[in-house]
């Protein structure tokens, strides 16, 4: 186990595309850090640079305090779990687990011991002599994790490991990964584009956008206090409503409608953010909210509509009345205000 430090890490691909722009990140020993962002944001590139699969253009990577920029992937004491699992198709599960250890000339008895331990943790004991093609998606995923575990590395690197699984299995494996981390306590860096996966797994969440770190912190802190409109819109499902509004004398106005009063802001144009569950709707023939359509979620209901020409989604209880026009109110504490020009949080 070891800490990982990234210092002004940058990657420029041949052809001039700058995928990662000066990322500073300190990952503590035993920490579970999730890099999350839309596809093409550079999160995978960061992970692959830590793994040693991409050359570092500038900056430095340290694992356990030692600079590893020039080291081969095998010399970095890391293990990686790939999106497609990347199991060796012609080898049995046992051989898949043993391959990396045999290449390190580990004694046979030690290899057998480690495989037995990993197989027990991941419930692979009955599958050890099967070939990967005779395994289900979830089992393959577990073998891929087993291949990482037997190495007993300084850090695990996960590259979207659950993207190829169906929704139900994904939730199950998410739980297994979380338990595994609690049990082993190995430093882990996890890349995903799924914000829910990121929220549930992370000790610390790092939101990446356009090759830069947009915001980092505990998942709940980011959820409650997004620093930018990007983070605000990215975390949470259904996504936060972001709309143009104005603050006049402490009142938040969208067109003629007043959504909240006693807003702590000197006044002017803002980008306002409101989570769908923070909106309170009541039927009102003169209300500002024009209903477009309703989505039933079972436990709740999503009302899609417009207010002053801007799209707005509200989440309500299934019992709550629904009408074509509705009045809309919210608590000023639930309101997020952002600078309309820079997208940065105000106040």
């Amino acid at each position: 186990m070891a800490a990982i430090e990234l210092e002004t890490l940058g990657k420029v691909y041949p052809g001039g595309v700058e995928a990662v722009k000066g990322v500073d990140l300190a990952i503590g020993d035993g920490e579970f850090v999730v890099l999350v962002g839309p596809s093409g944001c550079g999160k995978s590139t960061i992970l692959r640079m830590i793994a040693g699969l991409e050359r570092v253009t500038h900056g430095e990577i340290r694992i356990g305090g030692a600079r590893v920029n020039e080291r081969e992937p095998a010399e970095r004491d890391i293990a990686m779990v790939f999106q497609t699992y990347a199991l060796y198709p012609h080898m049995s599960v046992r051989q898949n687990l043993a391959y990396g250890l045999r290449n390190r000339r580990m004694p046979k008895a030690e290899i057998a011991r480690r495989i037995a331990t990993a197989a027990r943790i991941l419930q692979l004991s009955d599958l050890l002599d099967r070939k990967p093609r005779a395994l289900s998606g979830g089992q393959r995923q577990r073998v891929a994790m087993g291949r990482a575990i037997v190495r007993e590395p300084a850090a695990f690197l996960f590259d979207e490991p659950l993207s190829n699984l169906d929704a139900k299995l994904r939730i199950h494996m998410r739980g297994e990964i979380k338990q595994l981390h609690r049990r082993l306590g190995t430093t882990s860096v996890y890349v995903t584009h799924d914000q829910l996966e990121a929220m549930t797994l992370a000790d610390r969440l790092v939101v990446v956008n356009g090759g830069r770190i947009e915001q980092q912190g505990a998942p709940l802190d980011l959820y409650r206090h997004p620093a930018t409109t990007f983070v605000a819109g990215f975390l949470g499902a259904p996504a936060m409503n972001l709309f143009d509004a104005a603050v006049e004398a402490g009142a938040l106005r969208v067109g003629d409608a007043v959504l909240a009063s006693a807003v702590a802001h000197p006044g002017g144009r803002v980008t306002a953010g409101l989570r769908p569950e923070a909106l309170r709707l009541s039927p009102d023939a003169g209300g500002a909210f024009h209903l477009d359509y309703v989505e039933e979620l079972g436990g709740a209901r999503l009302l899609h509509g417009r207010i002053g020409g801007q799209a707005m989604v509200a989440q309500t209880a299934v019992e709550a009345p629904v009408a074509e026009r509705m009045a809309l109110a919210t608590d000023p504490a639930d309101l997020h205000l952002f600078d309309p020009a820079t997208g940065r949080r105000l106040g």
Binding site: A51, A79, A86, Y99
Partner: peptide
């Protein structure tokens, strides 16, 4: 990703050729 997994598992080019490419 298979090639990269082999790199992380410490297989150099010739080892990769012998252990993975040839059997496949």
């Amino acid at each position: 990703e298979l090639v990269e997994a082999a790199r992380i598992d410490g297989a150099g080019p010739l080892k990769f050729f012998r252990d993975i490419l040839l059997p496949l």
